[in-house]
Deep mutational scan, measured.
Amino acid sequence: KHLIERYYHQLTEGCGNEACTNEFCASCPTFLRMDNNAAAIKALELYKINAKLCDPH
């Protein structure tokens, strides 16, 4: 559950690194913003595939 919350935060708030290159992070310049419901679904999907989590900045 904690990991899913981290994915959700990364998708909605980002890691804080303006030069982030993680396509699944709101801080990445090319990230496409999504609403909270879509972010919750995506967080579950990312958890299932063990996607990369950013280190908070």
Rank of each mutant, 00 (worst) to 15 (best):
G14F: 01
A43D: 01
Y8R: 14
Y7I: 04
C28A: 12
N50A: 13
E18L: 09
A43V: 04
L46K: 01
A51K: 07
L46G: 05
A39Q: 03
I4G: 06
Y47H: 15
C28K: 10
D55V: 12
S27H: 04
L11I: 05
T12F: 04
N37E: 08
E13K: 14
C20Y: 01
E18Y: 08
P29F: 04
R33K: 14
S27C: 09
Q10Y: 03
D35W: 03
T30C: 12
P56I: 11
C28G: 05
N37W: 02
A26H: 05
G14A: 01
P29Q: 07
S27N: 09
C28N: 12
A40S: 14
N37L: 03
C25M: 01
N50P: 10
M34D: 11
K42F: 02
I4K: 15
L11M: 06
L3E: 04
A19L: 10
H9Y: 06
G14E: 00
G14I: 00
E45H: 05
P29L: 05
H9L: 15
L3N: 09
L3R: 08
T21D: 12
Q10A: 06
T12S: 10
K42G: 03
E13G: 09
A43G: 05
N22A: 03
H2R: 11
K42T: 05
E13P: 00
H57P: 12
E5W: 08
C54F: 02
T12A: 06
R33Y: 04
D35C: 06
G16C: 10
F31Y: 09
Y8A: 09
H2F: 15
E13Q: 15
A26T: 03
N37S: 08
C20T: 01
N36P: 12
A38H: 04
A40E: 15
L11N: 01
N37V: 04
Y7R: 00
E5H: 10
T12G: 02
R6E: 08
F24K: 10
T21M: 06
D55N: 13
T30Y: 04
P56D: 11
R33F: 02
Y8C: 13
G16I: 03
I49F: 03
C20Q: 00
S27A: 08
K42Q: 08
F24G: 09
D35Y: 03
K1S: 01
K42W: 03
A38W: 06
K48L: 02
C20W: 00
Y47G: 13
K42H: 07
S27V: 02
L32Y: 04
L53N: 02
N37M: 05
A51S: 12
C15F: 00
E18Q: 15
E18A: 13
L3F: 14
N36C: 12
N22D: 02
D55Y: 05
E5V: 04
Y8D: 02
K48E: 09
Q10K: 02
F31W: 04
E18K: 08
A51N: 05
A43F: 00
Y47W: 08
F24I: 11
S27R: 05
T21Y: 02
R6W: 03
E5R: 13
K48Y: 02
T30F: 12
L46V: 09
E18W: 05
N17P: 08
Q10I: 05
T12K: 08
R33W: 03
C25H: 00
R6I: 05
N36L: 12
N36D: 15
I41N: 12
L53T: 07
Y7V: 02
K42M: 03
Y47K: 14
P56A: 11
Y8M: 14
Y7P: 00
M34S: 10
E45W: 03
H9S: 13
I4S: 13
H9V: 12
K42C: 03
N36F: 10
A40D: 14
E18S: 13
C28I: 03
H57V: 15
H9N: 11
C25L: 00
M34H: 07
Q10V: 03
Y47T: 15
N50C: 09
R6S: 11
A43S: 14
G16P: 06
F24H: 14
C20V: 00
H57L: 10
C28S: 09
L53S: 07
L53Y: 09
E13M: 07
C20D: 00
L3P: 04
L46S: 07
T12Y: 08
A39P: 04
C15N: 00
I41E: 14
I4N: 10
L11H: 01
F24R: 07
A26S: 10
Y8V: 12
R33A: 07
L53D: 03
E5A: 06
Y8E: 11
H9R: 14
I4C: 06
C20G: 01
E45A: 08
T30P: 07
T12V: 11
I4R: 13
F31A: 14
Y47Q: 11
N36E: 13
P56M: 07
E18P: 15
L53Q: 14
A39V: 08
C25R: 00
L53G: 04
A38V: 14
L46I: 09
C28L: 04
D35P: 06
Y8F: 06
N22S: 11
N50F: 06
L53F: 10
P56Y: 10
M34P: 10
R33M: 06
M34N: 03
H2G: 10
M34Y: 11
N17T: 13
L3D: 03
N36A: 10
H57C: 15
N17E: 11
G14Y: 00
T30R: 14
G16K: 09
H57E: 02
E45P: 01
E5C: 06
A40L: 08
K1W: 01
L32P: 15
L32E: 14
C25A: 00
H2S: 14
I41S: 14
C15V: 01
A40Y: 04
E23F: 08
I41V: 13
G16Y: 06
L32A: 13
N37F: 02
T12R: 08
A39T: 09
A39Y: 04
G16H: 09
N50E: 10
L53P: 04
D35L: 08
A39R: 09
H2Y: 14
K48Q: 07
F24Q: 13
L44P: 15
A26W: 07
C20F: 00
G16W: 04
G14P: 01
A19F: 11
Y8N: 07
E5S: 12
A19I: 07
D55R: 06
E18D: 13
N50L: 06
N17K: 14
E45F: 04
G16N: 09
E23M: 12
L53E: 09
C28E: 06
R6N: 12
A19W: 08
C20L: 00
A43R: 01
Y7N: 02
L3S: 13
R33I: 07
E5D: 13
Y7H: 03
A43T: 05
N22E: 04
E13N: 07
E45C: 03
T21I: 11
R33S: 10
L46C: 11
N37G: 11
I4D: 06
D55T: 08
K48G: 04
L11W: 00
M34G: 06
H2C: 04
E23V: 11
Y47R: 14
A19Y: 07
Q10P: 01
F31L: 11
L46F: 09
A43P: 02
A40P: 05
R6M: 08
A38E: 07
E23W: 06
E45I: 01
T12E: 03
F31Q: 07
E18V: 11
A51L: 02
A26C: 09
M34K: 04
K1N: 02
T12H: 05
G16M: 05
A19C: 06
K1M: 03
H2T: 08
L53H: 04
L44M: 10
N36S: 14
Q10R: 08
C25T: 00
Y47N: 13
C54S: 08
A38I: 05
C25G: 00
N17C: 10
A43W: 00
T12L: 12
A26I: 07
A51W: 11
